[in-house]
Design a protein around this nucleic acid. Sequence first.
DNA 1: GTAACTGCAAAATATTTGCATCCTT
DNA 2: AAGGATGCAAATATTTTGCAGTTAC
Lengths: 136, 136
Amino acid sequence: MDILDILKRNNLSVTDSRKKILEMFHHADGALAHADIEKNSSENFDRVTIYRTLQTFETKGIIHTIPTADNSILYALCKEECSQGHHRDNHIHFICDSCNTTYCLDHVPYSSIHLPEGFTENRTDIIVSGICHKCH
Amino acid sequence: MDILDILKRNNLSVTDSRKKILEMFHHADGALAHADIEKNSSENFDRVTIYRTLQTFETKGIIHTIPTADNSILYALCKEECSQGHHRDNHIHFICDSCNTTYCLDHVPYSSIHLPEGFTENRTDIIVSGICHKCH
DNA sequence: GTAACTGCAAAATATTTGCATCCTT
DNA sequence: AAGGATGCAAATATTTTGCAGTTAC
C-alpha cells in the first residue's frame, strides 16, 4: 500500500482524512464525486474538509477531475505521469448510464486531434457515456 | 432569421425571453453559460426564467450542454440533426484558456473510439482546451 | 514549538419549487 | 377562455471563507 508514499512524495502531512479519502479512491477503482465521499457511511468527514482535501489533491496532481454532462464533477486518481499543474491524463473516461460507474480506459487509444491553424492544445478530455460491460 | 421557426417547430410558444435568449446564442456564435445570459446588460431576465428556458431548450434538442473541467455548464445551439432526446453533437468543443470563448469545431474529424468488449457508446464528448487563434 | 490541517459557524452562491399573475394562442 | 410561461418569494443545495482549536512533524 503506497498511500503514505503518495502523501509524503507530495509534501503533505499524513492526516486521517487524507489517508481515508485516498483509500476510498483505491477501492473505488473508478471515479468518485464529492457526494460519494460525503455519503460514505463508514466515515464521517466534514463537508469542508472534503472540499479542501480534493482541491489539495488536485493541485498536487494526485487526482484529476472528469467533467460530466450533468454538471457533477468526478475525481479519479492520476497515473504516474501526472505532476503538479500539468495533468497528463489524456485517456478516455467512460461513464455508464445505468450503474453510473466511471471507468478510466487507460488502454484505449485515440488518434490525436488535428486542430485548425492557430489553435494550441493544452488538455483534452474525452468522455464517452453508454452501457458498461456489467450492465449488459 | 429563423428564430421563430425554431420555436414553432418545437411547439413552444413564442415569448420574449425565449426569442431573446435564442438571439444571444445566434450572436454568440459559441457557447454561453447561464451567467453569460444573466449578465447580459441589455436584457433583464429573471434567474429562474433562464433556468427554465435553458432546460426547455435542452429537452427539445435546441441547445446542448458542454461539460467543462471547472464545473460550469456551457450551452450551445444544436445542429440540424439534433432531435428531442437524442443529441448528435458529436463534434469537438474547444475552450480557450485565455479568453474563455468556446468553439464548436464542427469540421474537425476524429476517428471513432474503439471501446472494449461489452461497452456500448451512447454519447461522446470531446473537450479540448488551450489557446485559440485570436489569443496567440 | 510551529506550521499546517480540521471542524464549526456563517457567508456567499447556485438551483429548485410553489404559486399568483400575465401572456400566447 | 385555457394553458402555458413568467416573476417573485422562499426553500434547498452547493461552495467558500474566517477563525479557533487540534494535530503532524
